[in-house]
Design a protein around this nucleic acid. Structure first.
Lengths: 189, 189, 189, 189
DNA sequence: AATGAATGAGACTTCATTCAT
DNA sequence: AATGAATGAAGTCTCATTCAT
């Protein structure tokens, strides 16, 4: 029963790789289909347009991470342990699905404005951790948006460094430790 | 009255604005020329191609900032004062020429690999500050590349927050204070 | 229970409607099958191609009308009564199966050259009426092709007016009277 | 001074010919440009799209004829002379620019709904002649819309006969005489 | 220096048709 | 008989670049 699901996944996987390698605009539909070994028309049976393909690839992963961070926030007890678990989770995802994570990182500016408040959202989860930490007296009073941004900045930079890959050769584990430590220092003053 | 220069500057200014608004690939030569009120052919008298225009716009500003940070590094006395002056310098540039800074931020991934080691380079300057700080015992022993990356991450995130402009409404001055403080905490442990 | 026939008719009916609404070229196979609630492959079991479908729909109705007009020509006695009966017959068909008639009207230029002399043909019937009328002295000597064309012109225009529907809101019955009268005046001089 | 006007006219002329020969939808952009001996991009410098090209070709001629009929209506004295002059004018246009007239005839259904009430309009002129004729007692009381439609029907059929060209070989002059006579009979009862 | 009409490769997308199930 | 995923040729349109004026 060739229900097409396998083909759709093949297309998604192939597109992801090419979008990362060359950029979304620079990747043509024919790049994707010939790389995937399918006909052009087949792509359009599964995705309405190139834009829709790019967006679906983004939104799916973005919301998945949002949901996972939400799970961590609920499960862990303290602000410290939540933040640490979240950052380590980012590292795990990066290790397990570098391509997906890289795509999220590189294409976020293109897609961010299409997100609706209802969608699961990693940034909101981090801010909530800080908010709750302040309320419980675990961390000093501070602007939760500024702090959440800075924590995100540290994580993003970790990825940036790996992607450009020129300057930092650390293992992802040691980067995790360093980033956790830095994040806690930034948040706890 | 070298009016060729004025035209070239007009083109550069116009292109910069459009590149930021729509992205480089999404901006057409005709977008630029009609916005600037000139003919298509005129653009090609001043820039060899669209790629060259995008690169020249990037490299010029990137190297200027590199030179300015170099000046700060030489002038200031301590690692602390150097880092603080550098971050405040970034804020000043952002205030004075937001468009240029935004363009650098958004297009860096496209251009970074074209940089040669000989070119003035903001990142190198920050790393040098940390390196020297360690050697003089002003800050603890640490991986200068990791630390420089994290400081850059904080600065980049500040810009990111302003550009997406959804979450942070702080004045750039107050962001400067916060970023300086966070950077020092990250570096000094 | 020959259910293949029912499906074929469903396809024909659906295609007819869409061909009228959007034009033949502008109607896609998928438009037809999804409108009819069947699979694409099913259409091709009943019609060899889209062109064949369009032609079959045309030819079937065109020849039916030709045969009916032939019946009228044989049954009625005078040129006057034949012409009147024929025009009223057109009006009846229009009322009973507007879709089919509209399709004939709109697609005739595309199909007319595929007609062979052997096929039943409404125009030939009208010309024969005029020819016979002249021979019997019922109507003045005149070019039967020109006159038949003009009578067809009046009928076609009646449909045209209804289809574009902007200018004439008369009931089809009252249009019949007027058209009959005008046709007789055109033919009888 | 190659201002491009010549090229635009060349494109229009070529497109008109092909639209008539093959139909609008069936004529491709490449058909037009290779027939005209120009590049694809050149067509798009002069016409925004294929639809716009088809419409511009239609509207221009349609309104010109509307304006010319208006001139006739004002210049001639009686309903009879006006109608006769108008029908002869149609014949003259057909002789002088058969291609344009043919195009108007074949593509009218596609374009008619884009006409606005403000545009010069041949049908309106014919109806006005009948309206005024009734008011002055030159022709009997009758529905001006129905009569105008029937006159248009006779004219259209004359073209139809020439285009399909199978049945009528009369010179356009003799068709004019016949059509004038028939029209007057239709209108004057 | 400036102009802008012309170029044509190449992008995205559609759609009639096939065929394994 | 019916299904619908897959095909790929062909369509429309864009756009960086050139060049005669």
């Amino acid at each position: 029963m060739p229900d097409g699901t396998a083909t759709k996944e093949l297309i998604g996987r192939t597109a992801l790789r090419l979008f990362i390698e060359k950029g979304i605009t620079e990747t043509t539909i024919r790049d994707i289909t010939s790389s995937a070994g399918i006909a052009v028309g087949t792509l359009y049976r599964h995705y309405g347009s190139k834009d829709e393909l790019a967006w679906e690839l983004f939104a799916e992963s973005y919301m998945t991470i949002g949901r996972e961070l939400h799970g961590i926030r609920i499960k862990e007890a303290t602000a410290r342990s939540k933040l640490e678990a979240m950052i380590r989770h980012f590292c795990n995802i990066f290790d397990k699905d570098t391509a997906m994570f890289t795509y999220l990182f590189l294409s976020r500016h293109r897609h961010l404005q299409k997100l609706t408040p209802r969608m699961p959202n990693p940034y909101i989860e981090i801010r909530s951790v800080i908010n709750e930490g302040i309320r419980r007296g675990e961390i000093p009073r501070q602007d939760p948006d500024v702090s959440a941004s800075m924590v995100m900045g540290l994580i993003m930079q970790m990825i940036d460094s790996r992607l450009l890959g020129q300057r930092i050769k650390q293992s992802i584990a040691s980067l995790a430790d360093t980033t956790v430590a830095a994040s806690l220092r930034v948040v706890e003053a």
